[in-house]
């Protein structure tokens, strides 16, 4: 029962934050110079007053700003994210169209970085001070300092252009007609480079964090007690240290799982990955207000959702919290 109240409380707070995000972004984007009608007229290479007026009326941009804002908020309350001016389709469809690609990319990058990061961190912590620790820590630090877009570019240069092992960009081979497993394999091949470049930084973050956290926990009293009891080092490491060292990592992972959705802009741009990060960037330059707001809305909702999940996972990892 308590957990339910807590979840409801969190959801109410989340709704307030989401509303604030919508209003702020709405005002921000409308403060930008130019509007979608001007962009579309500009692209057409010719325009006159009548053309602009037609477009603005069609998009509802001839209304006062507060009317537009109110209409938008009440639409969103009914889960209607509006219509894309440029793509001529509902924003929700557009986002749902692009979301799987982003989730696949970020999900893979997330899983890869979590697994490798924690493994590397545990390895480094168990050999603290030895050369393998130094190596892991140095490599992690190097990854940590490498700009994502640069790593992506160098990856394309090496693995696609020079070696020809992997496709340099895209989601799948267009027009190949692949189905079933063949298609999955095709997508997986395209996924390798973007997922690795995106995951590189986070692998570094997790390995550093795991190492630090393991070392900290290993000095705590209950671990000393366990050692005194004569438990084998492997058991202590697994049952006592790792389990407790994972707490800060779960928190961080929860935060980042949500942020990854919006943070894929660079990767999706370099790799021409048809996800919502790219959608957002295009919508911004085209002043496709509804799409931009929709992407912000969805990614913020994801962050909130992941934070909630983190909270629940926390309860599993740390039984004390469940009891409280």
């Amino acid at each position: 029962m308590k957990i339910l109240t807590r979840i409801v409380g969190r959801l109410v707070k989340a709704a307030v934050v989401l509303l604030a995000i919508l209003v702020l972004n709405f005002l921000l984007i409308h403060a930008a110079p130019g509007d979608p009608a001007a962009v579309m007229a500009g692209e057409a290479g010719a325009t006159d007053e009548m053309f602009l007026a037609q477009l603005r009326e069609k998009f509802g941009l001839d209304q006062p700003l507060h009317v537009q804002l109110w209409k938008y908020i009440s639409d969103v309350a009914r889960l209607d994210l509006g219509y894309s001016y440029r793509q001529q389709m509902p924003v929700l469809d557009l986002i749902l169209d692009r979301l799987p690609a982003t989730l696949l990319l970020t999900g893979t990058a997330f899983a890869v970085s979590l697994v490798f990061g924690v493994l590397a961190g545990v390895l480094a912590a168990s050999r603290v001070g030895k050369w393998s620790d130094t190596l892991i820590s140095s490599v992690a630090l190097l990854f940590y300092a490498t700009p994502l877009f640069w790593a992506a570019l160098m990856g394309v240069l090496l693995f696609s252009v020079t070696l020809g092992w992997l496709p340099p960009f895209g989601y799948e081979t267009v027009g190949s007609g692949f189905t079933g497993w063949r298609r999955a394999l095709d997508i997986a091949e395209h996924l390798v480079l973007p997922a690795l470049s995106l995951g590189l930084f986070f692998t570094a973050v997790y390995s550093r964090m795991t190492r630090a956290s393991m070392l900290e926990v290993s000095q705590m009293d209950f671990v000393k007690t366990a050692r005194a009891k004569g438990l084998s080092p492997a058991v202590i490491e697994r049952r006592h240290i790792l389990r407790n060292a994972l707490l800060p990592i779960v928190t961080l992972a929860g935060l980042q799982a949500g942020q990854l959705v919006g943070g894929a802009v660079l990767t999706e741009t370099v790799f021409a990955w048809p996800g919502i990060g790219r959608l957002m960037f295009e919508a911004l330059t085209q002043r496709d207000y509804n799409v931009l707001l929709g992407v912000f809305f969805v990614s913020a909702a994801m962050v909130i959702l992941f934070n909630l999940i983190t909270d629940l996972v926390y309860g599993i990892v740390d039984p004390r919290i469940r009891v409280q």
Binding site: A32, P33, G34, D35, P36, A38, V39, A41, G42, E43, L284, T285, Q286, R287
Partner: peptide, 12 residues
């Protein structure tokens, strides 16, 4: 520097 929308707006 500005994007396409801003550039259109400034020229217009």
């Amino acid at each position: 520097s500005t994007d396409v929308a801003g550039w259109n707006q400034k020229l217009s």
